[in-house]
Each structure stands twice: as C-alpha cells, then as structure tokens.
Design a protein around this nucleic acid. Structure first.
Lengths: 203, 203
DNA sequence: CCTACCGATCGGTAGG
DNA sequence: CCTACCGATCGGTAGG
C-alpha cells in the first residue's frame, strides 16, 4: 500500500530516451538542451535537476551503448568453429543495432564530441569491440576456414561497415525482423554476392 | 604579361576546402563560421564576401560531392557481364571515397542539415546513386550470375555500408592505395570471407 | 520542476 | 577583407 502507482517512465529515463533520439537524428552539436526539454515536456532549466551536463548525457549514452555491443561476446559459442562464431557475432551485432537504431547511431558517430577523459575511455572500448572481430578473422585465416588471401584489417572494416550501416536503414516496420537481417547479412559477408561455386553443392 | 602570378588557391576554394575538412570532422552543426574563418586565416565577417550562408556552403559541398559519386557510372563498362560491372562500380566508388575522405563524410552524414528545397534535391541524387547498385544486383540475380537467394535491397545496403565506411578508416599513409583497397573490397563483397569452395579451383 | 536570468557564442550585416 | 556590431540562441545556474 505504501507503493506508488507505477509511473510510465522515470524522468531521468525520459530525458535519456529523448537525448538518444535527438542525438541520433540531429547529432550532438545539432541538438539543444531546449530540444530535449521540449521533447520531455519540461522547461530547459529543469533538466539539470536530473543530469549534470549535456556532455555527461552523451557520455552515458555512448558508454552504455558500446557496452551493449561488447555484450555480444556472450552470444558467441566458446568452442565452436570460427565461422560459426563469426556468424553468431554478426547476428548478435545486428540484433543490438536493430533493437536500438537511435542509440547505435549515437555510438557510431557522436563519440567525436566527447572530451577527455571520456573520449579516450570510449575509444578504448571501441577498439576492444573491433578486436573481437579482428581476432575471429585472424583465427579463421590461420586455420584455413576463411580465405587465405584476406587482409584481416580490411576484412573487418568491410564487415563492420556493413554492420554499422544497419541503423541507417533498418526499420522495424520493414520486411524483415532483426534475426532475418542478421542471417542475410551473415550470408552475404561470409559467402559473398556470387552464387555458390561448388559443383551442384547443396546450400 | 597581363596575367597574374598563379596564386596558391583562390579564396573561395580555400573556404570550401576548410569547410569540407571541418564539416567532415566535427559535423555541420559542430562547426562555426569562426572555425572556418580562422582555418582560412581571415576574420569571420570576411567569409561573406565569398559565400552567401553557412547552408549554401554545405549544399554546394554535398551536391557536388554526390555528383562525383554519380560520375562512377562512366567507369562502368557498358556491355560487360554484371559481375564485371559491379566490380568496376565498387572500385570506382572506393577511388572517389579514398581520394576525398573528408568530402565523402560530409556527403554521407551531413546532408541531414540541409533544409528544403536543397534536402529533397540531395536525397533524390542519393536515391539515383543507390539505384545504380540496385539495378546491377537485380540484373545479376535475374541472370544467375549473383546468388539467387539474395534480397537485393539488403545486399545493396551491405555493399554500400562497407563502401561508405571507407572514409572513416582509409588513410593515404596506410598500407594500401585506393585501387588496392577497391580490389580487396570487391573481392570480399563478391566472394565473401570464406575460402573458395570450388574443388582445386584456380583463383 | 518553474521563474528568471547570465555570460558566451552564434550566423550574419553595414559601411568602408 | 576589416571594423564594429546586431539580435538570437546557447548551456547552464540561483533560488525557490
């Protein structure tokens, strides 16, 4: 009985959600605290009862956002073949990106507006994330389950480029759900656009 | 004798070059006219002797930038097989993106800050550009030279994602020149990361 | 969470 | 291209 009615959203969450959407659409520098306030439905000064500054708001979004991508490691089966692990990583990445396209756009592009020491911290997490894919590709090249002719850096850039583009076009209202998109992207990246070259091979 | 000494750069060009670099690095909203002026070495008000407004500056950069991508059509051999045309398109795109990474970043991300009617005009050109790739992929699926199982929209998004990511990482000081990067990306996108599956096939 | 406000900075201009 | 400036808007704060 002492419990309150459950509110739809706590004010701080509403601010963060509005900031994610606006930073994603208009960028950090293109969004004003007044934009955020009017989206939330309060006056600009009132925001500062819940947050410290515009940049700490960005930092929180970017940092937690990258961490939600780093969490894909848990979706990678530990002792499966490289190709299977890579496929799982791609699908998990697409799931995160498609589940929250706005936040992903902020993670991929707005980190530039962080200042030190937040910038370095974010860049380090970003590097750790890339390393997940670099290690997988290197391992696959070494054991022959990926093409020997690959340059692993360029391969990872191609891979992450295709994956990081997802929030620019994915719509939950579209033909495919995130799982289907992940599978199709994994197929394209692993097998390429060309048809199967194996003689009468099943696929 | 009436000819002037050739100046290093005409003032308007210097302004546009500075704007490209700054819009690319810090975004349109994150760049001030004062930033551009100090990069060029004049006082802020002096810029307006050469340009009309911040937005017309952006519009010129975006519009001419997209047109330099549309010009890749001339690099596509008219009656070659689809796969060969697609490979030529990829290589030409990478050449444009790597030759001018700053401008490409503006083209890919800063068009959002255009207002009407510039925005619609830019979006139309962008759509025309995507259509080049959509038509190639559709044709390849239809004639069986690309995988029958492809969804052409997702395939093009994957393709353009990998290509549009190039200006984020390409450095002229790196291991590869633009031509090599184009070839490697074309290989990865067409043939995938997996090794060739044809039995003892030459490659 | 609002009222009322601050100093700094913004894009842009008039006149030379 | 500079001097000198404008009104608007910015992120943020004091005090309630």
């Amino acid at each position: 009985m002492a419990r309150e009615e459950p509110v739809v959203q706590r004010p701080r969450e509403a601010i963060v959600e509005a900031a994610i959407a606006l930073f994603g659409k208009r960028g950090f520098a293109g969004t004003t605290m007044r934009d955020i306030a009017s989206e939330v439905g309060v006056l600009p000064g009132s925001l500062y009862a819940h947050i410290n500054s515009k940049e700490t708001l960005l930092d929180e979004i970017v940092e937690l956002g990258i961490e939600s991508f780093l969490a894909i490691e848990e979706a990678i089966p530990k002792s499966a073949p490289v190709v299977e692990r890579l496929r799982a990583a791609i699908k998990a990445h697409v799931a995160v990106a498609a589940e929250n396209p706005g936040r992903s756009l902020v993670v991929f592009h707005q980190w530039r507006f962080l200042t030190e020491p937040n910038l370095t911290r974010a860049l380090n997490k970003r590097r750790r994330y890339q390393q997940i894919f670099v290690r997988l590709v290197d391992e696959g090249i070494a054991d022959g389950t990926l093409a020997r002719t690959l340059d692993s850096k360029i391969a990872v850039f191609a891979l992450l480029g295709a994956l990081n583009w997802v929030p620019e076009w994915y719509s939950p209202a579209g033909h495919f759900n995130p799982v289907e998109v992940g599978e199709k992207l994994a197929d394209i990246l692993l097998e390429g656009l060309l048809p199967p070259r194996s003689p009468a091979g099943k696929r």
